[in-house]
Nucleic acid binder design. Sequence first.
DNA 1: GCACGCATATTTTTT
DNA 2: ATATGCGTGC
Length: 796
Amino acid sequence: MDDFFDIGEPIRPLASMASPAEVLRKDLERTMNPEQLNAVLNNQGPLLVLAGAGSGKTRVITHKIAWLVEAVGLMPWQILAVTFTNKAAAEMRERTEKLLGERAKDTWIGTFHSTGLRLLRRHAELVGRTRDFVVYDQDDRERLLGKVMKELNVDKEYLSPKKASYYIDDQAHLLRGPGHPELPMELPIDKTCAKVYAAYEDAKTRANAFDFSDLIVKTVQLFEKHPPVLSEWQYKWRYVMVDEFQDTDRAQSHLLRLLAGDAANLCVVGDDDQSSYRWRGADVRNILDFPDTFPGREVAVVRLERNYRSMGNILKAASSLIRRNTARHDKSLWTEKPAGELIRVFAAETEGGEARWVLKQLLDRRRAGTPLNEVAVFYRTHSQSRVFEDVLRMEALPYIVVGGLKFYERKEVKDVLAYLRLVHNPADDVALLRVIDSPPRGIGDKTLERVAELGSATGTSLFEAMELFAQSREGSRSRAAIERFRGQVQGLRVVAERNADALAVARAVLEDTGFADWIKKDTTLEGQGRRENVDELMLSIEEWRARNSDRSLTAFIDHVSLLTSLDQDARGQAVTLMTVHAAKGLEFDTVFVTGLEEEVFPHFNSKEEAALEEERRLAYVAITRGKERVYLSYARSRQRFGRTDVNMPSRFLGEIDPTVLKPESEFGGSRAFSGSAGWTHGATSRPSVRPDLSTLQGLAGRSTGGGWAASASKASSGSSASSASASRPSHGRSLDYADSQVGGGGGELVGRQVVHPRFGRGKVLKVEGNGEDARVTVKFPMVGEKTIIARFLQAV
DNA sequence: GCACGCATATTTTTT
DNA sequence: ATATGCGTGC
């Protein structure tokens, strides 16, 4: 198949009319720099494209696909393009469609995991599963591990399911299955892990399930054990392209090599400076050593070093930072863009002050005409999002938190999905255990234990064991309960068979199992939230159904299994809040990199040199997301765990070329950010730069002096306190918690009119707790009842 | 068997 | 501070 290609020369036009290939070539020559063009046109054998941040990488990949089709003559379905996230895959598909139109639909563009899933579905029987197998996520896996470890009598204190899960992932990334000779065996805990690993593997097989790692590892296994299958796919996929190659682990790069075969028409694109998944098994060596890994073959290397994204100063800041790393391909980005503004570095007292500063800059940007969806706030960990959410909500600015609370991970949502999975695959013990008491149906631990015993005695799934149990003469009450449950599931299976539509099955699940009635009965606020979530799930099934031609239960389950919260698309004009990890591959006009403190960013768990370099790469990724403006910020003290931590400014701040930075602080003036000497204790100093509080809604006419200075002086009391004091008008018409004694005689508040920045005016129905953190239930005319933390309300 | 209440760990990043 | 897990009482 090597000679399938005779590339480099476009197909000759038949007539004098320009062929699509010629048009494309002209277009490429006009719009691409020489390196990009080189990357697009080089199509024989292995190619490494070292694509610096903002160097037009996605453009190269999509145009390369177009070129392969238009000029080289490949059929779209002969191209495989792999990325890491669904989001990146979606963008690639979209942009390829712009170039190729409908034909792009035949190109397989997917994530590593979706590609693996697809292959495994096709050949399930060769890897010890039936085609109905399911995919276990982290949660399912830990449940199954818990079950397995219980059976093995492994003490959870000694080895937690979570630890076991990490262990399994570590081994899987190295392609070591259970029983592999290289599994660590020195310590007693290693032996326990190995034992658990083997038992877990068996349990997965019995449950007809794969976990995330399996999607890669078992695909590799499939290919290695069944060369004809591998040949089949190698023959189909003539060209393989990979994005974010720096984040591949050993199993993934091995899989790629298998797929590429002897022809090795494999193009990997990546940037070692942006590698950030070490903890997930990513091995930077995959990209660093790529040129040397094809014995006897020349590996072409193209470097994309021209940055089209960021202003000069931003690039300078990023480059000066990343230069501190040692393990990297040498390269230097350049741009023709002007230097642009200096990068402002803000020193706040508390994370609340940091958030308010970000908010102020954000409002300034909005006034200047920057659309909100071009603004992003980055932080190292999810938990940092909250303060920003608080201030944005106060200001009624729309925002999206990427990641964080994951819709598909909510309990009730997972419950419904577990029902679907169980209907689809009754051997799925994890799903069964999940739904068995939702709603409660009189099947308790005792009964379940007996069923489980039957199951392990006969080597069958719990569901099958239930049938045996029903035939036995065990206690009649539990037997009836089990029978009823089995009947429900069987009934649902009939629905599924009669009507293969996922939506119909989901509806039947809600009705027939009593799940809908059960959550309807719960009148608490959480219950209401749960109902809303289930409604939203049904809605999302409908949406999915409208978009897809394959509406089967299997298709839906696959779709959901691989979904992540990163996939929700930014709708409309909203500020984006996300972790730095989630930011990879994106760009924004304006970027805030927050929490630049030691212990936070770099993270306290990353002290070791290699880990620290990864943290630095993360900071590099963050900064290079910005097109026009980048703001950096840190807080002297930060709430964490309920405690107040005082941290030094991040070492990264000191590593950036100081000539592009413009330091400022909560109390005015500029200040060096090396060492704690930079800190003054704010209690006594009068703020010379106060945040522009007049911008906060409903604060016009507040007294000067008061709130801010007060909150600064008690900085350690935390974000909620300071944001409350900032938001509370100092006189008159506020919800004055202390005076109205919400806790004790809080009745006074009930019935009063209040205003919420987003929901508008409403009437207080109920107050729980006291002080600014009291939970106040308010009835709003438009949105109905909501429970809101007191500090976000204002009395009228 | 189930609901409620208290205690505990949890926070790095994700397919 | 919050979510989850475990124990106790109905």
